[in-house]
Computed example of a mutant assay.
Amino acid sequence: MESLDLLAEQGHWTKCIEKAKAHGLPILHKYLALYATSLLKDSSPIQAVKVFNTYGTPAISQNFKIYNRIVKEMLALNIDKEENNYEIWSELRQMLHKLVENIKTGNEVNSQTKSHFEELLLIVHFCALRAICKKVPSLKQIAVKISIALLRYIDVIPADKAFCEAGLDLREEGRISEAFVFLNYYLDICEAIEEGDSQIIDNTYMEHTDIPTDFPLPKALYLQDDEALHDDIRQWVLTTSMDQNIDQVHVVLIA
């Protein structure tokens, strides 16, 4: 085992994993977890997904925090800007599908954990569908509906990201009133993140919907690395708010 530890310390992970396979599943799973943790420390959740898809996604309790962290970090990324965004979501969906299937065949996982990962699988499935629908002009309206549906999961998806994507998708489709509501709410959330105070968010337009108004504030802004887009949204909301023809309607979920 010392040789495996040495390979891991030196970062020779592929060789380490291949050698670990000869020592049985418990040892393999141990070093897979260490490898994935190392990748997450290096901000490489996409690569961590590839590792589990290649070597297996065991339904063991010591890995659940790793799977959760992978999904959480992936959902916080701006994957829309990647040309292969569907493939990225598809690989994460594959990892979660394997995990859920492994959970179903085991007897050691409680129903709450099972339901949790099934929900994550559903969310990621929606993300994959949205990505592929956005690539097909005739399916863009479905992508918009999915973006709106994902707002129900802002206890998992960073709230500013979810409202930003939904608002931008609506704006692109010319649904200006709804886009205004969502992007204005996005800006409110951004301000709350910067101030560290969720109480300043005006939830008026989310009342009478099943969009949560009690959700965790993200630790970092979704568009922190894309100030140009954030400023564009801010300017658009300001300009649109002065348009007398815009109905600031209450939100009605259609997805």
Results as ranks from 00 to 15, higher is better:
Val71Ser: 02
Asn85Val: 05
Val71Trp: 01
Asn84Asp: 15
Leu77Lys: 14
Met74His: 14
Glu83His: 07
Leu75Tyr: 08
Ile88Met: 09
Ile79Asp: 10
Gln62Met: 10
Phe64Thr: 03
Phe64Gln: 01
Tyr86Thr: 07
Gln94Tyr: 11
Ile66Glu: 00
Tyr86Cys: 07
Ile66Cys: 03
Glu73Ser: 15
Trp89His: 13
Ile79Gly: 12
His97Phe: 14
Met95His: 07
Asn85Ala: 07
Leu77Gln: 15
Glu82Ser: 14
Leu96Ile: 03
Met95Ile: 00
Trp89Ala: 09
Met95Asp: 01
Met95Trp: 06
Phe64Lys: 04
Lys81Glu: 15
Asp80Met: 05
Tyr67Cys: 01
Met95Arg: 11
Lys98Cys: 01
Ser90Thr: 02
Leu77Asp: 13
Leu75Val: 08
Asn85Arg: 08
Glu87Ser: 09
Ile88Gln: 08
Glu91Trp: 03
Phe64Asn: 03
Arg93Tyr: 08
Glu101Thr: 01
Asn84Tyr: 09
Glu87Pro: 05
His97Met: 12
Tyr67Val: 00
Met95Gln: 07
Ile88Ala: 04
Glu83Phe: 06
Ile79Trp: 10
Arg69Gly: 05
Leu96Asn: 02
Asn84Gly: 10
Ile66Trp: 00
Met74Trp: 11
Ser90Asp: 13
Leu77Arg: 14
Ala76Cys: 15
Gln94Cys: 10
